[in-house]
Design a protein around this nucleic acid. Structure first.
Lengths: 203, 203
DNA sequence: TTGATCTGTGAATCCCGATTCACTAGCCTG
DNA sequence: CAGGCTAGTGAATCGGGATTCACAGATCAA
């Protein structure tokens, strides 16, 4: 986000940008190096392989994402607010950059990078499970299988936001509306009273 | 499922099997041909490319899946039963063969094959949206954004079942329990009263 | 029987992107 | 300034899998 002072930093930056713009597949070593203003060989002075470079890219992005969600959770108090804040944070960020979100969640990558992504998802899912557990403990939501519920919540958000079926491509809707619909969906899903469910009037 | 009478059929069969067993990446032309008892070149007598072969494979599997779900829906009456039947059908089949389900939903494939997969998901999602719309119309579930809800339901199921975070790999649970948890989750998600939510007792 | 067409063979070829490597340029240190 | 280090160059190499192709056998119609 700030200054890619070092060459290494510029490479990471270039790789991130290409990932955002055109996906992992298009982010060839040649392209990355060129964008960083280097020749292909130089990349290997800084990373043992393309995969390792992307491990770092993924780690960066994922870390930032997780931090944002954690701080969002801390900023709000009470189970319901926390849940909404976490979902909204993720949803908003994913919506801001769909391609990146897609790469982070679904896009095919080397096994090495995949491991990183998996770790990220696990942490995200674990965090969600913790949150749900808290809700169950305090009686905010009914007894339930929090592991499955957490996975399902994560999946629901991901699919609704970045999946190939996501609403925008087809029947355009405003982003806030989508986010609201998702929050409502998830609330109901885990047993909170529903509140608004996105669409107020029959269209 | 029945007789791979024609050579073409044997190729499709072989490709499906390899897809199930080890995924798209491992299903090289050489491997497919070998399993079908042919030399690599022969494949090209029947399909213009590997991708086109897999388009057919995907189409077959997806078609069967959709038919199964439709017939499940028709066999049951009333919104709640229909919904449960559809989810249970999908969940059960995915659980029976996770690898295939994964390939069908997430695994990296050529653009050509991807288009086929996308079409399949769209149809599935559209079906779900129709079902939800019916629910809204009959008053079984509250007014809501059925498009987003349908996508979220599909995503929740997929993630909970075949996603890398899915419960089985880690903390083993019985399949029926997972299916039940998912059905409960989805019921709540769209605004049905929850009923059982999978876990009856605090573990 | 002849030859035309179809199906199959499998080694050779192509393609394409990651990786290597011989070499250059700047820079610090004694 | 020589020697040694780091950073960088970009063409050549490598690897792996899809695709092609020159060459059979088999079948069938005339």
């Amino acid at each position: 986000m700030t200054a890619p002072a070092t060459t290494r930093g510029r490479l990471v930056r270039a790789a991130s940008e290409l990932l955002e713009e055109a996906g992992y597949a298009t982010a060839s070593v040649a392209a990355i190096a060129e964008r960083a203003g280097l020749a292909t060989g130089a990349l290997y002075r800084h990373f043992p392989s393309k995969a390792e470079l992307f491990v770092e890219v993924f780690r960066n992005v994922a870390e930032a994402e997780l931090v944002a969600m954690e701080s969002a959770a801390e900023r709000s108090s009470g189970f319901e607010e926390r849940l909404a804040a976490v979902i909204r944070t993720y949803a908003t960020s994913a919506l801001r950059n769909r391609r990146l979100a897609w790469a982070l969640v679904y896009e095919p990558v080397d096994p090495l990078v995949d491991a990183e992504r998996l770790a990220y998802r696990r942490r995200y899912c674990a965090g969600m499970a913790d949150l749900l557990r808290e809700g169950v403990r305090t009686g905010a939501i009914p007894e339930q299988d929090v592991e499955v519920a957490a996975a399902a919540v994560v999946g629901a958000i991901a699919e609704a936001l970045v999946g190939p079926l996501s609403p925008l491509p087809g029947g355009a809707q405003s982003e806030p509306a989508i986010v609201a619909a998702i929050v409502g969906f998830c609330r109901g899903a885990i047993g909170l009273t529903a509140g608004s469910r996105g669409k107020e009037s029959t269209s």
